[in-house]
Each structure stands twice: as structure tokens, then as C-alpha cells.
Design a protein around this nucleic acid. Structure first.
Lengths: 189, 189
DNA sequence: AAACAATACGGAGGTAGCCTCCGGTTGGCA
DNA sequence: TGCCAACCGGAGGCTACCTCCGTATTGTTT
């Protein structure tokens, strides 16, 4: 379920509040880490604490919702780039987007992984989704001759992650590091 | 400083409370993780919360004290083993002690490392202390011909850590895994 | 042994976060 | 328009955090 209960759609006010909460949770977790105050999230969303707890019965439920939403956005970005950019630029931009995301999140994802079963629906589905998005981006780059044919989607994701770690302490070098990675990704001439 | 202020010794009651707090903190952190309740630690130590805060002004200060104490104990164990066991047994027992410790602590040390500067006095000193202890254990084992001469103290510590990770999910295999490690440590015949 | 600093103790108290519960409100359908 | 299921909000009971200061204990001095 995203903002529906599987049955009929949510009432308009419920949906509005759900989305405000999600947005505030996203920025609060980013700002204060995984144990940001839930009451403050509710306050900033202009909503009572009871409403927060109705939509997200536990802190973990809220964290999961944020995580899922971000994965979906990352996947969506891949499709968007595939339509608006030339293949090589799209590839580079997507790697950058992932690296930026995982740098911003640092320990947050770890916290989640520590608590959740790695084989849970949530993880499996998000992983699949990202994987499919990666395939799209990669297929275009291959067709255009800007990516080696033996580069897998997993490689792609690992490279992005590596980039985020490598540029952790020196964000200003991100572009240069990315160019190294892309050099490695291109077919040998 | 351990239980002295560098100047004159602590008053008897202060010292007693300090040690009780440290002991309770140790078991509470073990049981509930790095964010165990400080008030409960004080309660279990039979001490007012004010007393806890006087001795350890912040949660981090308490965590550091626990960490330091445990490192000291680990180092002390090396010297004790060096005096009471044959070299090869001492080596095995110490590797085991380290592995057990780091398994018990799991995320706790990570939490600490996330907050503290890795070049802080605390870490440097504890590291040196353990390193020296490792040298003692290793030197004896080498002299007795049960450890290769190209094995460094860092290798030793890494092996112990590897053992703790490897036996995380199957503690009953710890002994067998340890024997593999020791096989690798012995000089080739 | 008694008195006196210096030192240490302990917990009340104010703040904040957690989560539950339920009287009141609102959206959407007939 | 009227109705009711769905939804809202926040009071309230609990726990934890940390500070502050009146009281008690220690050990030293006479």
C-alpha cells in the first residue's frame, strides 16, 4: 500500500495528512537522524500526534514509509532521465543521484537494516524496483555504446555506493571521482 | 585518570559509587545497547541520579569510561595469560577473549566510533595499550615456536575480530574456527 | 574527641518525548 | 440536505533527561 488501504481510496483529509507527515518525516530524519522526535514531525506537519500514530503505528513504520518513498523516487528519476537526457548523461546523472542519496542518509539505512529482516517484502520489492530502473538506464547506455556490455546492474549500484563513500569527506571531488568511474564504465576502445 | 582526579585520591564514598556505577553501566549497555536508561543505571547501582551525573557529566563520558575499562581488562588478561599458561594456550585463549568481547558488544563500539574523534586521546591510548599486550602474547608464542615470525600484532587483532564476526551466527563453531586460525598462525613445517 | 571545611550525596522539579484513548469533527454518499 | 463511517487532535499517564541546591559524610586539624 502506498496511500491506499488496498480497498477504497483514502479520504481526502487523510491522504493530505499522510503526505505532509511523510514529507516532514523525510526532512526530520535527514536532519536529526533516525531518532528524530515524532512529536516534532507531527507539529511541523501541522497535525496532531494522534494522527501521526494512526498513519504510522510505530517509528519503524514511518521510517519504512520514508525509505520506500525515496526508493521509488530514485527509480522514477531513472525513467525520467532515460527520457530527457542522452544515454551517457543520464547514466552519469543517475549514479550521482544515488551517491548523493546514500551520502545524505549515512547511518539511517543501517539503522533500518539492523531492525528489519533483509528478506522482508519491503526490501525485496524496493530492491527489485531499483534493479529494474538500473536496467533501463544501463540498457540505453549500452545501446549508445557508452557502457561496457559486461557491466551489470549490481555493478552499477555498487559503483554509485562506492562513489558516495569515497566522496564522503571531500564532496568537492565528487565530479572528478565520478569521471574516473565513467571512464571505467565505457567500453575499451 | 581512572578513579583519581590526578590530584589527591577520591574520597572513599566517591570511589565506591564510581565503581558501582561503572559496573552497572557495563551490564546495562550490554543488555540494552548504548542508549540504556541512565536513571536505571543509577538505580541499579543504588545511587542517586545526581551522583551519576557528577561522575559522568554526559552519556558519552560514561560510555567512554566503560570502554576504557574493558580495554584495560583485555590488556590485563593478556599479561595474566602470559604468566599462567603455556604460550600456545595463552595465545588461543586471548584470541578467544577478544572475539567474545567484540561479539558481545556488536554495535556498541560502532556507536562510540561514530561520535568520537578516532584520533582522540582515548582511542590512541587504548589502542596502544592493547597493542602492547598483543606484543607480549605474541612474543612468547613466537619464542615457543607456535607463531610464525611474520605475523604482526595487527594481524592478531584482526584475526580475533574476524573470528567474532565469523562465529556471530553460530557460536557453537567458535572453537573449530579458532583452530583453523591457529593452524594458519603456526609456522609452516 | 570534637569541630570544621571540603567534598560528595540524592532527589525534587521542570522539560520533553512516547504512546493510548476517546469525544468531537468532517468528508463523501444517498 | 442529512447521516455515519472515517478521521482528527490533544489531554493524560508514563518514563527519561539533566540541573540545582539543601543535607550528609569524610578526613583532617586542633
Amino acid at each position: 500500500m502506498s496511500t491506499t488501504t488496498g480497498q477504497r481510496p483514502m479520504r481526502a483529509d487523510a491522504r493530505r495528512n499522510y503526505e505532509r507527515l511523510l514529507a516532514e518525516a523525510k526532512s526530520s530524519f535527514l536532519e536529526h537522524g533516525a531518532d528524530a522526535s515524532l512529536e516534532e514531525i507531527a507539529r511541523r506537519a501541522g497535525v496532531g500526534i494522534g494522527t501521526l500514530y494512526r498513519h504510522f503505528p510505530t517509528r519503524l513504520a514511518l521510517q519504512e514509509a520514508v525509505y520506500r518513498d525515496e526508493m521509488e523516487q530514485l527509480a522514477a528519476k531513472a525513467y525520467e532521465l532515460a527520457e530527457t537526457c542522452p544515454p551517457d548523461e543520464g547514466l552519469a546523472a543517475w549514479i550521482l543521484a544515488i551517491a548523493e542519496y546514500s551520502r545524505a542518509k549515512r547511518g539511517l539505512t543501517q539503522t533500518l537494516k539492523a531492525v528489519i529482516d533483509l528478506h522482508s517484502d519491503l526490501f525485496v520489492r524496493c530492491h527489485d524496483e531499483i534493479q529494474t530502473a538500473a536496467e533501463t538506464i544501463l540498457a540505453r547506455a549500452r545501446a549508445a555504446g557508452t557502457a561496457r556490455s559486461d557491466l551489470t546492474t549490481s555493478d552499477l549500484l555498487r559503483l554509485a555506493h562506492a562513489l558516495s563513500v569515497a566522496s564522503e569527506r571531500a564532496p568537492e571531488d565528487t565530479g572528478r571521482l565520478l569521471s574516473f568511474i565513467l571512464d571505467g564504465v565505457r567500453p575499451r576502445s
